[in-house]
């Protein structure tokens, strides 16, 4: 029994955090929003070079051959910096499904960008920046497809409506039958939970910083108990979503019997923590929090997009419920 990450896992996450602090700043994220594409190819190349994109791909595909336990802290760091583009879709969904196929090496090297659409919405996140889309029907090659921009509340996750494109073979597994969609959805949910936790930690930091600087009634607003308690309650939810998320990563990595229950518990708790944190952080910012100018909006909108992707809170709660209440 040892509920801790090993030194390599922690050092890799630290290195990623440091890189992102320099190369994925709020103004860079804002620039990605403003260019209307929702993707930063230079940053993507850097992530691939570090091995982040290929963490869950086998070494024979140019990946690092890691498990979800190796990857979960990376997702948290990607979320802290709200890295734009299909990191969750490439790393956690399409990548492992395409392992061993002719597409895998390109995904690991960053030259081929894969996304995924598993929620049956009719729009594809990150469609305009991706080469292939994993769908429940199979793998869709976007070469020659027409993509209409459907916007998206999060400018780092633009949605596209795809017309055309063709289902293609990925080494004899071209049909939906060959893909374990439940496992792919579980990986997506854990990755998203960790990403939401990282984004929440960043919002608490931003709100704390604002509360130290902003003065009213002659005092920093962070000295008022009403403000302190808002942020303490947000932190409480975030801190108690972490261990369940790490446990879910372990259950995915080891194929534990309770994996569905554990994954859903993580996503439900991370959703709630991230949503509550977005509300608290905005309230602490006051009117500034309601502006386009404040960076907080970039993080809040990321949360509002991802808390409903790969299973809403109530969907996941029902899945936990059927696991724990059935005798």
């Amino acid at each position: 029994m040892r509920f801790a990450f090993d030194e390599d896992q922690r050092l890799f996450a630290d290195a990623l955090r440091k890189m992102l602090a320099e190369q994925c700043t709020a103004s860079q994220v804002r620039a990605v929003w403003d260019d209307g594409v929702g993707h930063d190819p230079a940053l993507w190349a850097r992530l691939a070079e570090m091995g982040v994109i290929g963490m869950l791909l086998p070494e024979t595909d140019g990946g690092l051959g890691g498990s979800m336990v190796d990857a979960v802290l990376l997702f948290r760091e990607l979320g802290r910096a709200i890295v734009p583009g299909p990191v969750i879709e490439s790393m956690a969904i399409a990548g492992p499904v395409l392992a061993g196929s002719k597409w895998a090496a390109g995904i690991a090297s960053g030259e081929l960008v894969a996304t995924a659409e598993l929620d049956g919405t009719g729009h594809v996140p990150h469609a305009s920046v991706a080469h292939v889309v994993l769908t429940p029907e199979g793998l869709l090659d976007l070469a020659g497809a027409e993509i209409d921009d459907a916007g998206g509340i999060d400018g780092g996750r633009r949605l596209g409506i795809v017309r055309g494109g063709g289902l293609v073979d990925h080494d004899g597994r071209s049909t939906a039958d060959a893909v374990d969609l439940d496992a792919a959805r579980d990986r997506a949910a854990v990755a998203t939970a960790a990403y939401l936790i990282g984004a929440s930690e960043a919002m608490i930091d931003m709100a704390g910083e604002y509360a130290r600087q902003r003065h009213q009634f002659g005092k920093p607003i962070g000295s008022f108990q009403a403000v302190k308690h808002l942020l303490a309650d947000a932190l409480l939810k975030v801190e108690f979503a972490k261990a369940p998320t790490y446990r879910a990563a372990w259950s995915v990595a080891t194929g534990a019997a309770d994996v569905a229950r554990d994954v859903s518990m993580a996503k439900a708790l991370a959703n709630e923590a991230a949503h509550a944190t977005s509300r608290a952080a905005m309230q602490v910012h006051g009117a500034i929090g309601y502006t386009w100018e404040a960076d907080l909006q970039l993080w809040m909108k990321k949360v509002w997009a991802l808390e409903r992707a790969y299973g809403t809170t109530s969907w996941h709660r029902r899945r936990v419920s059927s696991a724990v209440l059935s005798s």
Partner: peptide
């Protein structure tokens, strides 16, 4: 306890 968290974990100004 919430005050303690705010002061020592979140480093908010003393009230």
């Amino acid at each position: 306890q919430r005050n303690i968290i705010a002061d020592r974990v979140l480093a908010l100004p003393k009230g």
